[in-house]
Design a protein around this nucleic acid. Sequence first.
DNA 1: TTAAATGCAAATTATTTGCAGAAGC
DNA 2: GCTTCTGCAAATAATTTGCATTTAA
Lengths: 152, 152
Amino acid sequence: MDSDLRQKIYDFIDSKGLRKTVQREAIIQAAFSTAQHFTAEELIDMARRIEPTVSRATVYRTLPLLVESKLLKEIDIGKDHKTYDPNFVNRPHHNHIICTDCQKVFEFEDHYMETLEDCISKRQGFTPIAKTVRIEASCDQLRKFGICKNKK
Amino acid sequence: MDSDLRQKIYDFIDSKGLRKTVQREAIIQAAFSTAQHFTAEELIDMARRIEPTVSRATVYRTLPLLVESKLLKEIDIGKDHKTYDPNFVNRPHHNHIICTDCQKVFEFEDHYMETLEDCISKRQGFTPIAKTVRIEASCDQLRKFGICKNKK
DNA sequence: TTAAATGCAAATTATTTGCAGAAGC
DNA sequence: GCTTCTGCAAATAATTTGCATTTAA
């Protein structure tokens, strides 16, 4: 976890008047020591490897705090549970491509997309607050060569 | 429900070898006699007004069939339940703006968005299959004039 | 006639919550 | 010391499923 991120996290804790507990520390540590997306259940496992006393309830109570703080973002990858993405602190405008062949989720940023979303919103009489783009797509490598580096 | 839509629905039922039942008819009638988005629970109510014998289970079993057939699309408007949009038959490429002031969901279509998504996918090595754009945005009317036609 | 579809109620899954005890400030 | 936070286990909400019965083809 880089120091800029650590700073933002503790700024948030302070600004909310929240207390620093070993459980929260472990959950935060777990959430941001990976660039992987994760579910609540996965975060429980990850956090418990750092601090075994972390309970399911505390994870479920901490997640909305991190989302509210914009440190974490809830993303919809078409599953029946929520998925969390810890990469919005570093790349606030990225979006996702979900491979329909291997189910992996890839991130992309695109400046034109940003601009276009702003234009569309304005035309409709709105000022955008949060923008989400999700593309489900099939792998060209796999189709052309029968193989892809993400899925053999 | 227009006859083109009715045709598509019965094409689907036939192609799947499904049976025509009063319950399914009622559910379909209910789903497509509105342009409104709805939840499973709302669809149960709507269908029961047409045919009171419709059960919760049948609605929950029918919804995935309609989604699979592309007649209905599951959309994510940030709630904890699934929301269904019956307007993709007529406007297959539309997207949503969710007003953060009144919570209403507005639909828009944009050709540039379509093209851009295709370009981005291609650049990443994918061929798009399904594309979703969701913009949460605040109402300019409301901010400027303190009033908006959607929310007084 | 027979395979598919239905309703009911119980099961499942993800998430939330009440409460009594523990711990940060 | 006072309040926030925690774990536990029970509660909730949305959705799914097993099974006996009904029904479409």
